[in-house]
Amino acid sequence: MKREFQVQRSKFQVHCLLAALCCILIVSLLSCSFKKDQIYRKTMILMDTLITINVVSDSSDKASKAMDRAFDEIGKLDKLLNFFSSSSELSMINRNAGISAVKVSPETLEVIEDAIFVSEKTGGAFDSTIGPEISLWDFHTRKMPDDKTVKERLPLVDYKLIRIDRNKSTVYLEKKGMLIDLGAIAKGYAADKAVEELKRQGITSGLVSCAGDIRAFGLKPDGKPWKIGIKNPRPANKEDEIMATVGLSDMAISTSGDYERFFISNGRRYHHILDPKTGYSAEGCRSVTVIARYGFQTDAFSTGVFVLGPRKGMELLRQMGFEGVIVDKDGGIETTPGLKGRIEFKGNN
């Protein structure tokens, strides 16, 4: 009797064991094949810069396809808006300055309209017609224009001389020699377009960074917002490269700084952010970070605010309802009230 009981008990145990092991096996197999949301990342060189797209997806195929489509979109913009490519629509507009109106695609029209909008809001501190001045400088070879040429060309810098005909979809520059350079808005705009494309592809969360112009949407797989670093304009060492971090979701961020392209001559720093009123580098700030809804806004406004300087710049950010961080020329840091508590400064900053 007792023996029988023992045998039965051991059979029962075997069944338990079998069941348990099968469960473990099935669960582990499932967890292997059941795909979790992951961040997929791809980097490409487009628009003469490094563009990185991150998407959250449960399938690498889907992610890869969406990223490729977004890169295609950016590549398309690159072809339309490249200042240096003679085949771009932008070059066509510039070549025909003072000659004739040029029919352009809706994207080109839109980004130029956006640029004019920002110019109006910044009172001309941001001006995409800075082309004639910026092409006088070469920050790699430390080429500096003579003052006379700079002054001569200043009348060519005026966004009010851009004529847009929406119905005909044409752009016309009124004065010969005018040049539109969209370098301070195109990357932010491209980030917007890439995000739109990702959303069309069914991606609900991602991050597009066109060099330093970043647009985030949705949350990371861990439920946290995307963590964006803001560059320190004067890093002392490699660990010091990021001055602050901020968590972003469904927002864009851009930083304009005097450290990106510059040279120092006779103790003065000449950098690529030119004041459209003087033709020389704007001097009030070291860097300006703007956080807003769209990439074209942050990209262009960070430049505009930089030119305006810390005091007027802060005022403009407040008016526009944007958030931002301004590092003035002495290294003083000011943030908009809305960012307090959301932004994390590193070290002794």
Partner: peptide, 27 residues
């Protein structure tokens, strides 16, 4: 990254960034 030549060299493990690392940098 070599922008003029359109060549990028990615070094090291391309794993997910550690906690505390940023996802992108503005500027």
């Amino acid at each position: 990254v070599c922008l003029p030549n359109r060549i990028s060299i990615l070094v090291g493990s391309q794993e997910k960034p550690k906690d505390g690392a940023v996802d992108a940098t503005a500027g």
